[in-house]
Amino acid sequence: MKSQHAAPFILAIRRDLLLAARHKTEIVTALFFFVIVVNLLPLGIGPDADLLRKIAPGALWIGALLATLLGLQRLFAPDHADGTLEQMALSPQSFTLLVAGKIVAHWLVSGLPVVLIAPVLGLQFDLPGRSLGLLMLSLLLGTPILSLIGAVGAALTLGVRGGGALLSLLILPLYIPALIFGAGAVEADLAGLGAEGHLSLLGAVLVVSLFFAPWASTLALRVALE
């Protein structure tokens, strides 16, 4: 019984990963965007190592938010345009599960690379080794939240005029808790305070979004398909 439900979920992930593999440039572009945005900050602020170390967590996190936003517009739009989303909504399988599969694939393609490349950028900001690990951990917990909440926004703005700008307007305020707890974890550690509190709160936000976001995205998609 369980495998029956898991099969379409895994197939939805595999499908989106295969499609992403045929559009490799898009993944690379989003990642490159992340690297450039984060690298622009020192150029705007100045090369003071102490200051850079202080702003590093926030800078990397804001870079991650923007990079996620970039990929979100293409989360549902191509499937909406060619009717695949319609077929998914008409599937006897749970639509929510298929949508969840798409969100997981989105994170694997846009969130995970950000987590993996973050330590390199952290080095540029002169972060100590311990903080690099913590930065990765906070991004590992936090980037799925960005994909999950972002999916709701992407579904709500599907096929709407000016979707991209509107998506940012809707989603960025909702990203604030993840930003505060994620960047805060690294900052607290740098300041010599424990990061556990921040990380557990980030985990709690992740659990809440795991619970609500696929369901809310599915509802929003059904509205968009009408």
Binding site: P8, R15, R22, D82, Q87, P92
Partner: peptide
């Protein structure tokens, strides 16, 4: 509901699979 990047075989495999 066809993906331009995929071939007919893949397209059908996925569309049938997503419907279980």
């Amino acid at each position: 509901a066809l993906k331009e990047e995929l071939n007919p075989q893949e397209n059908l495999l996925f569309s049938l699979g997503l419907e279980g």
